[in-house]
């Protein structure tokens, strides 16, 4: 018999990690193509509210997931249009995407605050009281398993396939990729929308499973932590997953410290994840001596000069 507190901690870790990881995996794909999208927070928010509204109105969880993913993806295409096609500043556009996403989701979700979900996203095996580690793993919902599948396949595609190599070439050297005959614009546009889709899935996980309700600004900076995770993971899926588990663990641990006999101020506990994120980023950058492994062309718009 394993300690029940430990199992609770493990479960909370996996859930918090899934939420962060899905969003950072999407951002990783976008950044690999050379596009920096700082709008993760806004995209998660859009996916969260769209999924929640669909679930409340139709009681169809599958439809809610699809709607959440699609709306964030379409929302991300604003960033793609502004940066990829119109070649405007990626930092500005991404930041504004966050502000717009939070405003639009508040506007849409105005009548959904305090609404209850009839059906939430249940775990596949629905084990009542998990009594060992394996059961905790089996007691996760479908998005958790999707996250594992995504990690393995995306890592494989990036490392071992021609498609993955070409895709990364776009983010590393735009001009070379272009002269190789790759369609830079199309690749970057699609990569940005895929990033949005992942953020949407993360948002759906937030409102249909993690908290199941809707309030304004409920993403609470998770989009920014997801961005930090991409840096933490050195733009590699497995390392990003590891980082997500670490941050998920911290997010799950800090509120539980009291049950382990630590007296902590609840208000200070709330800011701990952000302090830890900054600390980790600083330590990691020192450790790597500034070499982060970022795609070389990140943030630079592609423009093919006339010949």
């Amino acid at each position: 018999m394993v300690d029940i507190q430990f199992l609770g901690l493990l479960n909370a870790t996996l859930q918090a990690a899934t939420l962060l990881f899905i969003a950072s995996l999407g951002e990783l794909i976008t950044e690999k193509s050379g596009i920096l999208n700082l709008g993760v927070e806004g995209m998660i928010s859009i996916g969260a509210v769209a999924g929640f509204m669909t679930a409340v109105n139709t009681n169809n969880i599958f439809l809610a997931i699809v709607v959440g993913i699609l709306s964030s993806s379409i929302f991300a295409s604003i960033h793609a249009i502004v940066t990829v096609i119109l070649k405007q500043d990626q930092t500005v556009s991404g930041l504004i995407l966050t502000i717009l996403g939070l405003a639009v989701s508040s506007l849409l979700g105005k009548n959904y605050v305090d609404r209850k979900l009839e059906t939430k996203l249940e775990s596949i095996f629905s084990i009542e009281n998990p009594s060992n580690v394996l059961e905790v793993f089996l007691n996760q919902n479908i998005i958790f398993y999707l996250a594992i599948i995504f990690t393995i396949t995306i890592s494989y595609i990036l490392k071992n396939t021609m498609f993955g190599t070409r895709f990364q070439a776009v983010g590393e050297d735009l001009k070379a990729a272009d002269s190789m005959g790759l369609n830079v614009t199309k690749t970057q546009f699609i990569a940005t929308c895929i990033g949005g889709a992942f953020a949407g899935l993360s948002g759906v996980y937030l409102t249909l499973s993690y908290v199941p309700y809707w309030t304004d600004n409920m993403t609470a900076g998770r989009g920014w932590i997801a961005l930090a995770l991409v840096i933490f993971g050195g733009w590699k899926p497995y390392r990003t997953a590891l980082g997500a588990l670490l941050f998920g663990f911290l997010e799950a641990l800090v509120p539980r410290l009291q049950t382990y006999g630590f007296e902590l101020n609840p208000y200070i506990v709330k800011i701990a994840p952000y302090v830890i994120t900054i600390l980790v980023l600083v330590l990691l950058t020192i450790y790597k001596g500034g070499k982060t492994g970022a795609p070389k062309n990140i943030g630079i718009s592609f423009f093919r000069e006339n010949r």
């Binding site: 920014w224 930090a228 709330k270 952000y274 302090v275 900054i278 600083v282 950058t285 020192i286």
Partner: peptide
């Protein structure tokens, strides 16, 4: 150390608002 200032300045918002609360 060359730490990305976009993320660190953003995260300080959450820290300072937490401090205010």
């Amino acid at each position: 150390f060359g730490v990305n200032e976009i993320i660190t300045t953003l995260l300080t918002n959450y820290i300072v608002i937490g401090l205010t609360i």
